[in-house]
Simulated scan of single mutants.
Amino acid sequence: MKSYTRFWLECSLVLASLISLKTWVFPFFISIWFPTNDLASLMMEWTVIMTGIVTLFLYFSLGSVAKQVYRFRSNEASLVLAVLHLPLFFPLLGVFSDEWQRLLTDLFSLFSFNLLDWPGSQIWICWSAFLLGRKIKIMEKEKNVFSDKVKQEAEMN
């Protein structure tokens, strides 16, 4: 039960951080740094594109972490992800729920491919990216010499 809670907290923290960056932080700095409307509009488009791409990579990495770090089976990881996303469909969260749904839909709508026309498309894209991320395993190419020395010193003491 403890690992489910840790994974749920990790997922919710990362998603909440991404949503707050897209909604408040990036627009604030763009409005300060780019005073002309045309340039600010262009920067907001680029921000939407990059946020959508980062969202896809985020779900890939959450899937990988669920398998490699927490050792969840596919059904366990999918259940934790579903429990995490379930509150996003209640109107109580309002703006937060709308912004989560717009993480990927804004990206695709810029290219005239509207995901909002298909019911549940946001969920399927996130879940598919999450499951594809379970196939990813990140490994170091070279051994870290420093960490090996630290381990050896710890073993001697």
Rank of each mutant, 00 (worst) to 15 (best):
I19L: 07
K22Q: 14
K135A: 12
K143G: 11
S3Q: 14
F57M: 15
H85E: 10
L86T: 06
S78L: 11
L21Y: 04
S3I: 12
G94T: 05
P87V: 02
T23Q: 12
P35F: 06
N114P: 00
D106S: 07
N144T: 08
A16D: 11
F34R: 01
L79R: 06
F108M: 02
I136G: 05
F146M: 09
M44P: 05
Q152S: 15
L56I: 15
F111L: 06
R73L: 11
V80I: 15
A16N: 14
G120F: 01
V65T: 10
D98Q: 10
T51N: 14
L103R: 00
D117V: 05
F28H: 12
T5V: 14
L107R: 00
E76V: 04
T47C: 11
I136F: 02
E140M: 09
N114E: 01
F108V: 03
E45T: 14
D148L: 14
F113Q: 09
L103F: 02
K149F: 15
P27T: 01
L88F: 12
T36S: 10
S64P: 10
E99H: 08
F57H: 07
T36K: 04
V150R: 08
M156Q: 10
L62T: 04
F7G: 05
I53W: 07
Y59Q: 01
F29M: 04
Y59N: 00
T5D: 05
S31A: 10
M50T: 14
F34Y: 06
I19P: 01
G94Y: 03
L39G: 03
E45D: 13
L93H: 03
W118F: 15
K67V: 05
L15M: 06
R71W: 09
K2Q: 11
Q101S: 13
L84E: 08
P87G: 06
A16C: 13
S121C: 06
V48R: 14
F60P: 03
I138S: 06
I136C: 02
L116E: 04
R73H: 11
I138V: 04
Y59R: 01
